[in-house]
């Protein structure tokens, strides 16, 4: 399998403080990779560096062979980043928002097809023509997932993707993620929901205070720590 994402000794400093201490990992094409860690562990910083939002202090990140520092435009052409608590332009309708995003990726009929794909993924019915500021949190998240998946990225980066959603919305969004992975899209996501990560992710990385302290499939990690759930793995890993 092709290496979709390669992080080599990635470090990130804010001023004099190092937030990420030399993380190295590889994500294979079509894999769903989960990053877990407590608040402020360095998950969001890592995802932001992969998505070219933050400059890396040292080390390297390569997305399908494109280096984030030297070829950031090339990286942005094949990724989709969905930040935690992301929003959309409130004065636009859901359809207009999807069309606004689609214009950065395609023209003419291809763009129309992309928007139709987004509308189908969002599955908001007639509300797709309502203004975004009238959407519930679940509807907003479905729209944003659709936005992220609609351009058929090679790598989808999702930060706390189901955070704060009800059971049904969270389930449906997990189904969307599973579906795009089946279509060959590589996914790297962070989450505090261990049940979700256990069900969804092929492999998991545990970050603690900027260090990668665990890496493997959920089953491998459970065996390594001698526990039954990923939640117990996490607690044991971070508490030493």
């Amino acid at each position: 399998m092709t290496d979709a994402l390669v992080l080599k000794d990635v470090r990130k400093s804010y001023g004099n403080t190092e937030a990420v201490h030399g993380i190295s990992l590889t994500v294979k094409e079509g894999e769903i990779f989960g990053l877990i860690g407590h608040n402020g562990a360095g998950k969001t910083t890592t995802l932001r560096m992969i998505s070219t939002l933050l400059r890396i202090t040292s080390g390297s990140i390569s997305v399908y062979g494109h280096d984030v520092e030297t070829d950031s435009k090339g990286v942005r052409e094949i990724i989709s980043y969905l930040p935690e608590d992301a929003g959309a332009y409130k004065d636009l309708t859901g359809r207009a928002y999807l069309d606004f995003i689609a214009r950065f990726f395609a023209d003419g009929d291809e763009r129309k097809r992309m928007v139709e794909k987004g509308i189908a993924l969002a599955d908001l019915g007639e509300r797709i023509d309502s203004k975004v500021d009238t959407y519930s949190k679940g509807m907003m998240r479905r729209l944003l997932i659709a936005r992220a998946v609609m351009p058929s990225p090679k790598l989808a980066i999702m930060d706390e993707v189901t955070s704060g959603l009800d059971v049904v919305n969270a389930y449906e969004i997990r189904e969307i993620i599973r579906g795009i992975a089946r279509d060959g899209v590589t996914v790297i996501m962070s989450s505090h929901n261990m049940f979700e990560v256990d069900m969804l992710c092929d492999r998991v990385g545990i970050i603690n205070h900027g260090d990668l302290i665990g890496l493997g499939t959920p089953d491998e990690l459970k065996r390594e720590y001698g526990v039954d759930t990923l939640e117990e793995v996490f607690v044991k890993a971070v508490k030493g």
Binding site: L53, K73, E77, A86
Partner: peptide, 14 residues
């Protein structure tokens, strides 16, 4: 505030 800037900055535009 609406967290749309992060999305905009990761789109394939200069």
């Amino acid at each position: 505030e609406n967290k749309t800037l992060e999305t905009l900055l990761t789109l394939p535009i200069k």
